[in-house]
Nucleic acid binder design. Structure first.
Lengths: 262, 262
DNA sequence: CTCCTCAAGGCGTCTATACATGTTCTATCG
DNA sequence: CGATAGAACATGTATAGACGCCTTGAGGAG
């Protein structure tokens, strides 16, 4: 038998005006933070907690629910509640779209993943023509139809990111950009071959809780926010030649940026 | 009487194997997305929903809880449950620490807020000497004691960001950086006056759910993640002269970055 | 008319119970 | 010895009821 975790939990303070389920959550959170419960460890079962604290099951469930929305634990039906393991994180550097990387013949995501030693995959690729969403149209400076390239990225089998690229039709139509496989170096390499030498990218970073659809697509656990990143690519004429709308599982990424002090 | 929102909600599908509370959440989410319920509007009360759907109150509360963790609604004790208004967002540009801004004599946060027309405030300022946390020490390349400057920023009275700056003691000690008020242009202006001409900043952006302490300090609603930003300032000698650890309310900011394509 | 009290409405917390559904281990059967 | 049925255990969903605290508005006291 392993060490008796439940027996070491703090008792309730009946004089406190802090709600009982919060006190239970506090004591479990404390056990996690102190390392008595490590990553992947199983928490005491609901029944054990009910016995230990002498409360109703719903009270215990409320406490566990709270820890779930905090992203500290995940419940697995029929198995138990577990301290949430921190998944391996991808660190994205701000030079990840630099031309020198493009020359290697790999798209940004693939190149960076392989460098980090994780197995990358791309699936559910959809390429079609459509009217751009309003936010995208504003960035492209046009509401004309665009080519939309949607795909999902996986690390080691886990979906971590969905992305949709929007390229004006007058640029993309009839080129390899309109094909499912855009060729070596990805669409940025194609854009440069087409005479749109890239000058810079503007990225906008937001964070929020996922929509139900995003929870499905990224198989997100409760308590995992998403990073919403919109990147606009500008060529040397100052024209926006692509907008990429990305939803990332927040627990899978660290974004790195270098800012000049000038 | 306003339009009968509760009467327009979809009915339950008893043949579906989707949980009842999820179906109720779906119908409310749908009403919000279709605009039948706008920002700040009051949802039907729990009692009304119980009547409409013919279920137990806990089932309705489960549905509302789900929408809360999705960040779609907020419950206010004694008042009701409301569609969550999107607070005004601050857009932070990647040149916000450029020297030309510093010359104006304002610190970055203040200058940018005023430009955006919102009233900024700084409170709970704490300056002290301490051993740096491990992550900070790694970035500073030293585990020696540092000067820690902690503060909280508010927009229009709402707390939106906490930040702690860490500066090596051999740089900061005895200078105005060690004073509560660092003077015009903030600590970056002082660092340059001390001969540490700034070369660039490295920022790391993460997102996650807030710790209980962060929820307090930023008065966060359920369903609001935080953006965790760690910025390291480098002088022209390549030395890390400051690390700033920032927790931001994710619903209050959009971060903007410009990446060169070179 | 103003202030105060109080009731009603609304969400927060907690108990107790029942059944559904997924997982794991064991004991039995072939 | 291997497969499998089933028990034991785990979380998920739903019901019903009770009481507490906060907010708001109506009505009464002054």
């Amino acid at each position: 038998m392993t060490t008796d975790v439940v027996g070491q939990l703090a008792r309730l303070d009946p004089t406190s005006d802090r709600a009982v389920f919060r006190q239970i959550a506090d004591s479990l959170r404390d056990a996690i933070e102190r390392g008595r419960l490590g990553e992947g460890d199983k928490l005491p079962s609901e029944a054990q907690l009910v016995n230990h604290f002498g409360v109703a099951r719903m009270t215990v469930r409320n406490a566990l629910q709270l820890l779930q929305t905090e992203g500290l634990v995940i419940a697995e039906h029929g198995k138990g509640v577990f301290v949430r393991p921190r998944p391996p994180v991808r660190r994205l550097a701000s030079d990840r779209f630099a031309r020198r990387h493009r020359k290697q013949g790999k798209a940004a995501f693939i190149a960076e993943a392989e460098q980090a030693g994780v197995k990358p995959e791309v699936d559910s690729l959809v390429v079609k023509q459509e009217a751009p969403p309003k936010e995208i149209a504003a960035r492209l400076g046009s509401t004309r139809k665009v080519l939309a390239r949607h795909r999902r990225y996986l690390h080691e089998g886990r979906p971590v990111e969905t992305a949709t690229s929007y390229i004006p039709l007058d640029i993309a139509q009839g080129t390899q950009i309109a094909e499912p496989n855009p060729g070596p170096g990805g669409i940025y390499a194609r854009l440069e071959e087409l005479g749109h030498e890239l000058d810079h990218f503007d990225e906008e970073v937001r964070s929020r809780m996922p929509l139900p659809e995003e929870t499905r697509a990224l198989q997100l656990n409760a308590g995992t926010p998403v990073i919403h990143l919109v990147r606009t690519a500008f060529d040397t004429d100052g024209r926006a030649v692509e907008v990429c709308d990305t939803i990332m599982a927040a627990d899978a990424f660290i974004l790195g940026y270098r800012l000049p002090a000038r």
